[in-house]
Nucleic acid binder design. Structure first.
Lengths: 208, 208
DNA sequence: CAGAAATTACTGGTTTCCTGGTAGAGGCAA
DNA sequence: TTGCCTCTACCAGGAAACCAGTAATTTCTG
């Protein structure tokens, strides 16, 4: 039986060499190439598309999340298996949305790597146990960040810088009464009743 | 001539295998052991102290910065060479303060690794080029964060939550005039003139 | 082109904040 | 025991913010 054709992608040569060594005893796996950059991957796949690609997320010239999308669209038979230290839900979901077939952490044992390669090659998904636990945890709801108009954003920034409505009016060539109206509208949108909690929320939402 | 006795420490086996492979061709280097945790290192060094220890910073059971101090104090002949992806000045300075003889990034070539090992074994220091550049960059001055008393912190938090001085007085069982005085003192300490910029700075300094 | 949204500005009022000053009591450290 | 710091509280007044309402003009979008 033809062994699974595997290509390795990681920005560190020592990781690539280590992977080679760990996969070498597996008779059903054949490591046919290694790359340290996204550019190298793109060039290599023009000549030869492997069955499975072990793909790090941190690459020097392009992040692995975007590269994954690019590759899985261009080569539908390719199975991408993320191999990373980044155990974060947002990375996992984005990689899967971009066509990855699996997500493995770098602390995986050779046996786990072998199983992951086998499963994704067979058309199945594979996740490290830790990653599965992570995915099962509820995602806190994103705060309802108010939508501000262009002028409101300007006024908010100046409020946060400590300017009074009178100061802001002078700076923006407006009437102080106009600024007061903008101020009122901003406060209403944030659902607060004074400047202190307005600025606190704006800082939390990184609007200032 | 006796080859340099080197021990490798990293939480990922694939990195350890990769390092082995990269160092194997070097006749003046002998890899005598590998460890994936701080506990393993401590046990191994009781039996045998190498000349040079390649030490990752992220370990599962103890961080490499503290381990470095522990090891260099217990084994004065041991040369510790940090090997990490963490290219941050604070890590570099802390590792060197804790007795490390060198700091190398994981993107180093085998030649660079060889040179680093040789130099630290000879009693010299070694830094990757990127690390040297990093060390030469000026460190931005830390902001002068005001020191608040216990009561001031309480009042500040409540101000940030949008309470008026009257509300705060009720909540803390104080006179509103007392709260006004605390407020004035806080504003003076921050060197601002209104609540908006007070709360913005407090958020920046992570005091609320 | 029409309708909606944004922007501008106003009236009149109340509430809150800020400023400058003062001072006594309690706790703590030298 | 003394001196300093923290906390408490007060006075008076002006500045600023907040509140509720209204409305015309400009810009944007479908």
């Amino acid at each position: 039986m033809k062994p699974i054709d595997v290509m390795l992608v990681d920005d560190h040569r020592m990781v690539l060499e280590g992977l080679r060594v760990l996969l070498e005893p597996l008779e059903f796996v054949a490591v046919t190439g290694t790359c340290t950059t996204a550019a190298e991957v793109l060039t290599a796949l023009q000549a030869h598309v492997p069955d499975v690609l072990l793909l790090d997320i941190n690459l020097p010239d392009q992040n692995g999340v975007d590269l994954c999308l690019q590759l899985t669209q261009a080569y539908p038979t390719l199975r991408v298996l993320a191999l990373t230290t980044l155990n974060e839900k947002s990375y996992v979901t984005r990689m899967m949305q971009n066509g990855a077939a699996g997500y493995v952490l770098k602390n995986a044992s050779p046996e786990e790597l072998a199983e992951a390669i086998t499963r994704v090659h067979a058309g199945k998904k594979y996740f490290s146990d830790e990653v599965q636990e992570l995915l099962l945890q509820p995602t806190p709801a994103a705060p309802e960040i108010p939508v501000l108009t262009r002028r409101e954003k300007e006024v908010l920034a100046l409020i946060a810088d400590g300017l009074t409505s009178h100061d802001i009016a002078e700076k923006l060539f407006l009437s102080a009464l106009t600024v007061e109206t903008h101020r009122r509208n901003i406060i209403t949108k944030f659902g607060v009743s004074n400047t202190a909690s307005l600025i606190k929320l704006a800082a939390q939402y990184q609007l200032i």
